[in-house]
Write a protein that binds this DNA or RNA. Structure first.
Lengths: 125, 125
DNA sequence: CGGTATCCCCGGTGATACTG
DNA sequence: CAGTATCACCGGGGATACCG
């Protein structure tokens, strides 16, 4: 409310928008789906197999949401029996970069944690 | 398992690690907490006020987790009555950059969605 | 002020069965 | 093959009360 609380947008994390993006990719499966699709078009059941553990229901729900948000395109193939390809749209691909940045941080964080555990184990012997 | 499944890490989103980072910041409040702390040290109740809507319980739980992960430091102030400052550690600050990148994308995505809604509204009149 | 301890609810998720 | 429909569960999170 007061002027001193107004900051340069570049200097803060965009909390509001980040909250919104969590509604989009913050669930249990969506990030893995986007990850798999980042390699190129994938068929529905192939996607299901690659991710592993996801139910048809959840995969369908996630894909429908991503489609609605314009990140993923759905293509019915004129084969017999009919197949369905899912792939990232050009717009959807713009998500890969920031997601990779966060993924890299996450990877380093994981390594750091492993390292801490190792030190803890050494010191208690 | 098979060689052809091994890809250049830079070419894919790190799904595994991203899944892990969601366990850290993927909940309802943590991102907002990190966002507020990115301005500098904040007292417990001040943090609670700024975020708004969060319960003491959830704020405490999130801060404890962030502390345990080494992202946030907790400092008891020698005042009367005692106060507690929370702030991002140097390590915690390294999360700001990738988080900002994702936040920027999210902001643009939000704007894009608003734009689509506007077009939809125009076309149906 | 800065927490903990308890209880409880709801929605995201899983399991299963059915369909074009 | 690629879904949809229905039911059941359980854990994340809210409300409230209490504590040092």
């Amino acid at each position: 409310m007061t002027p001193e609380h107004i900051l340069d947008p570049d200097e803060r994390v965009n909390c509001q928008a980040l909250g919104g993006v969590l509604a989009l990719i913050g669930d249990k499966w969506t990030i893995m789906i986007v990850g798999e699709l980042s390699d190129g078009p994938v068929r529905f059941n192939e996607l299901k197999r690659r991710i592993g553990g996801i139910t048809q229901r959840m995969l369908t729900l996630a894909l429908r949401r991503l489609e609605q948000e314009g990140l993923v395109s759905r293509t019915v193939l004129p084969t017999v029996p009919p197949g369905v390809d899912y792939e990232l749209t050009e717009y959807g691909k713009t998500l890969i970069e920031p997601l990779t940045a966060l993924g890299d941080w996450a990877g380093k964080h994981h390594a750091r944690r492993r390292n801490e555990e190792w030190h803890a184990a050494r010191s208690e012997e």
